[in-house]
Write a protein that binds this DNA or RNA. Structure first.
Lengths: 132, 132
DNA sequence: TTATATACGATAAAATTAGTCCTATTTAAT
DNA sequence: ATTAAATAGGACTAATTTTATCGTATATAA
């Protein structure tokens, strides 16, 4: 329960790897996949997703790869998680309002309190803190 | 991602329902299942689990049911979650140390930092706060 | 004796997550 | 030009986890 996904895990591994390199050096999906024993295809998709969200910049062709272009201390963990996995809520009813039991639900307010606490926590942590 | 389970959800619904009743009145699984449109069997198992952890007391036979016996303000959300779902960590490697990639893993420390933050947060919230 | 409750193991169904496959496009190097 | 190595991304399969159900036993009030 309350686990993060492999996708996020792989994304963090890649980011941390890139940060450890000297400036502007490109990193390919292959390089990360080999070094950390991570599935190449899934990792590649994740890198593409990060590029799409302007966290990374992609360079195509051989000798291509990715590099970090965002200010990681400006991206909260909450935003990062949501970019990769969509809205972050411990219960679906936090976002869905079509729950059929809604009239009878007695834990909506309490759960939102929990959710807010968790969202606040991840809003206060930056990607930089995690990957530095 | 980072969702709580239905089991925990049902447990919270049941607790909140019991708290809203006058002292020492028993509540059956059927009663909760009907009122909140929740699967009876799964709810029953969850109530049994809470009884086993001395949060509830079970009374058998017809007219039987459950009542709260624990001090809910003495039980952290972290403990509650772990009683129902086992160790609470965003990544398995927080507990498992047999990860084959461990030698190459560059995010173990960062992830544990995140995990600790989350665990701290849930350690500071009590069941009472949620169900009151 | 009956009906209704808890107790609990086993299993099935559903949903989510994880991983793979395939084809296209880009581009540096030869 | 051709080749090789990279990103891009859709479709699909496999694995895992979560959710729900089934079946049987036991307890006990009426």
């Amino acid at each position: 329960m309350l686990n993060i996904t492999r996708k996020v895990e792989y994304a963090l591994i890649a980011l941390r790897h890139m940060q450890s390199k000297s400036d502007n050096t490109l990193t390919s999906a292959n390089e990360v996949a080999k070094q950390y024993g991570v599935p190449r295809e899934l990792l590649a998709k994740t890198l593409q997703q990060m590029a799409h969200h302007n966290i990374l910049e992609a360079v195509q062709g051989p000798t291509g790869g990715y590099k970090i272009v965002a200010e990681l201390d400006q991206i909260s963990l909450k935003d990062f998680f949501e970019k990769l996995e969509g809205p972050l809520g411990m219960m679906d009813c936090y976002f869905d309002s079509d729950c059929v039991q809604i009239a009878n639900c007695n834990i909506r307010v309490p759960i939102q309190r929990i959710n807010n606490n968790m969202r606040d926590m991840f809003s206060q942590m930056t990607l930089q803190e995690v990957t530095q």
